[in-house]
């Protein structure tokens, strides 16, 4: 056992020494994110005002990320592993501009797109066509870009005959297909995949993986958050292991996943 550890740690050091990112597209430098959570939940403004006057407002500070640094080169696939609440999803959100780091620096080159099914952006009264435009613009695409991909989306979702019917007449499966088609219609420069967040059934997740493989072949940089260490091993070149917001290991996916599996069990 001690021997294995020695081999693993030396190979990680070697790999890190060898690793020099030629064309970085993501640079994360000493990024920390702090959440302030009230000790007792304050549910209304009235309650807040009363507490404020009584000076009974206490916050607990939680560092979701602490001094995280790494680089990702163009076309690389990076897996992020760690237990629940280790900061994986927060890290993706910081890169996607959803959250701003409390300290540190995030530098991203290229268009970032999350692979998410945005069911929440659909409206049941609007037609499939109208919902494609609504959802596409929510993802940051212009009207023209949507027009260009419109036929592809409709065909991929297999909804040619129903595209002008209101969404409330669709079955759940049809809505999910439409959501997925819109989410994957454009090939981004950087793709963010959060398996933990991606709601949807098994077939949706399967399709996500297939589409991810497509993108990978096309040379898209991919960040993948997953509990599934096998998936990380299969798909990723490198892996980042997070524990309570801090980096435990960063290196070739094989090795980091092996260390992680040993660490967890």
């Amino acid at each position: 056992m001690i021997k294995l550890e020695k081999i693993l740690s030396t190979s990680i050091e070697e790999a890190e020494g060898l690793r020099s990112v030629v064309d970085p597209v993501i640079r994360v430098e000493g990024v920390s994110v702090r959440f302030r959570i009230p000790l007792e939940p304050v549910r209304s403004f009235k309650e807040y005002a009363i507490r404020r006057i009584q000076r009974r407002l206490d916050f607990r500070e939680v560092w979701a990320l602490k001094d995280v640094s790494f680089e990702v080169g163009r076309g690389e696939v990076l897996g992020i592993i760690g237990r629940n609440g280790s900061g994986k999803s927060t890290l993706l959100k910081v890169i996607a501009r959803v959250l701003r780091p409390t300290s540190g620096r995030v530098w991203v080159k290229g268009r970032v797109a999350p692979l998410l099914e945005l069911g929440g952006g659909f409206h049941p009264e609007l037609t499939g066509r109208e919902n494609i435009y609504l959802n596409g613009t929510l993802l940051g695409h212009s009207r023209r870009e949507i027009e260009e991909r419109f036929d592809w989306i409709v065909d991929f979702a297999g909804l040619r005959d129903f595209i002008d019917a209101p969404l409330r007449t669709y079955s759940t499966g049809m809505v999910a297909r439409l959501g997925f088609a819109v989410a994957t219609a454009w090939e981004p420069e950087i793709l963010l995949v959060d398996e933990v967040l991606a709601v949807g059934d098994q077939s949706f997740q399967k399709k996500c993986q297939a589409r991810m493989a497509d993108f990978r072949r096309l040379g898209t940089t991919i960040l993948l958050v997953s509990h599934n260490s096998n998936l990380i091993r299969q798909m990723c070149d490198y892996a980042l292991w997070l524990e309570s917001g801090q980096v435990v290991e960063f290196g070739p996916a094989e090795i980091v996943v092996a260390l992680y599996e040993r660490g967890v069990s």
Partner: peptide, 27 residues
């Protein structure tokens, strides 16, 4: 598009939001 996002080098939120809103005018 060589879009670059740098959290350390951001314009004033006041302007940044105006620019972002213009980019999302179709939304």
């Amino acid at each position: 598009s060589e879009f670059i996002y740098d959290s350390a080098r951001r314009p004033l939120p006041f302007w940044e939001e105006l620019i972002a809103l213009w980019a999302y005018r179709d939304l």
